[in-house]
Design a protein around this nucleic acid. Structure first.
Lengths: 143, 143
DNA sequence: TTTCGAATTAGAATAATTCCAAATTCCGGC
DNA sequence: GCCGGAATTTGGAATTATTCTAATTCGAAA
C-alpha cells in the first residue's frame, strides 16, 4: 500500500524501473531518493540542491517536472502551508502537518484511531471528498 | 465577538472610525465593505476590481495593504488553498473550506457541535495551536 | 491652519513556478 | 546493434502573485 514509505536507504539505482505506472528515469530516481532519505519536507529548491550532489547536471526545471510526476502518480505528497513554497513528503498515509513556530520545522501528525471526517464536519449528505488538507501552526508545550 | 459578520449592507461610510484597534481609512472601509457584501471568497485582485467601482483611484498595492491590515487585526480571514492566490473571508467563526471541484466555488463548512482538536489528532501533550487550517476538495453528491 | 506620522500610490523588484523550444535519451521493432 | 518516434531533460524566458520602495497625500490633533 505504501511500498516506498520505509525505503530510506534504498539507492536510487535500485528502484524498480516502474513505480505506480511511472517510468523511473535517472532524474526521477534521484529526486525520489532525496525525498525518501531526508524526511524534513524539503522545498523544490531544497530537493534541487541536494540532488545536485550526486547529479550535478540536473536542472531545477527537471526537479519540478519530476516532483509533479511523482505527486500525480501518488508516490510523494505535496504539502502547502500558507503561501510558502510547496514542500514534499514521502509519507502517504493519512496525516496532517504541524509547523513549529519557533523552529519553522514541520512535523507529521496522525489522526486518532477511528476518527472519520463525517463525525467531525457538517457536510451535506453525499459529499465526496477527494482531498483533505489539515495544517496546524503553534508551539510544543515543553519549551 | 464577531461584530461585523452580519453587516452585509452597512455602507462603508458608516463603519466606525476604529475597528479592533485599526484606524478605518476610506480605502480600508471600501475593501472591507466589498468583502462583507460579496461573500464568495474573492482574491485580492477580485477585491481590487470591485473596489474600483466606487473608488476608481484605489491601487492594487493599497488593496494588498488593506487586506493585510484587516487580516492582522482579525477583522477578516485569509484563506489559502493549494498554490492559488489567497482569498478573503469575513466569517471569523471556526470553520473550514470546501472547494467544489466542478464549479471551483468555495463553501464554508462548520465543525459538528463539541468537536475538539485534541479528540481528533495525536498531538504531543501541551502542544499549543495558534492556527488551524482545514481545506477540502471534492464534489457534492447531488449532481 | 500647521504639522507630522500614517496611509496611499505607481511602478519596480522578487520569488516560485510554469512554459517553451531545442537537445538528449529511451525503448520497441527491425 | 541501429532507427524512429515518443518521452524526458534542459536552460532560459515568461508568468503570476505578492512585496518593496520612494514619493506624495491625507487626516487628526495641536
Amino acid at each position: 500500500m505504501i511500498p516506498l514509505a520505509n525505503k530510506k536507504d534504498l539507492k536510487p539505482e535500485d528502484f524498480p524501473s516502474d513505480i505506480e505506472g511511472l517510468r523511473m528515469t535517472r532524474q526521477r530516481r534521484e529526486v525520489l531518493a532525496v525525498i525518501l532519505r531526508d524526511r524534513d519536507h524539503p522545498t523544490a529548491n531544497d530537493v534541487f540542491r541536494r540532488a545536485q550532489d550526486r547529479m550535478p547536471t540536473i536542472s531545477l526545471a527537471t526537479v519540478y517536472n519530476c516532483l509533479e510526476a511523482l505527486v500525480s502518480h501518488n508516490i510523494v505528497r505535496q504539502v502547502n502551508l500558507d503561501r510558502e513554497s510547496s514542500r514534499y513528503c514521502p509519507n502517504l498515509s493519512d496525516h496532517c502537518h504541524f509547523q513549529d513556530e519557533s523552529s519553522g520545522k514541520i512535523h507529521d501528525v496522525v489522526f486518532k484511531e477511528g476518527v472519520k471526517l463525517e463525525d467531525i464536519l457538517e457536510l451535506p449528505k453525499g459529499t465526496e471528498i477527494s482531498h483533505l488538507d489539515i495544517s496546524l501552526k503553534g508551539n510544543f508545550g515543553n519549551k
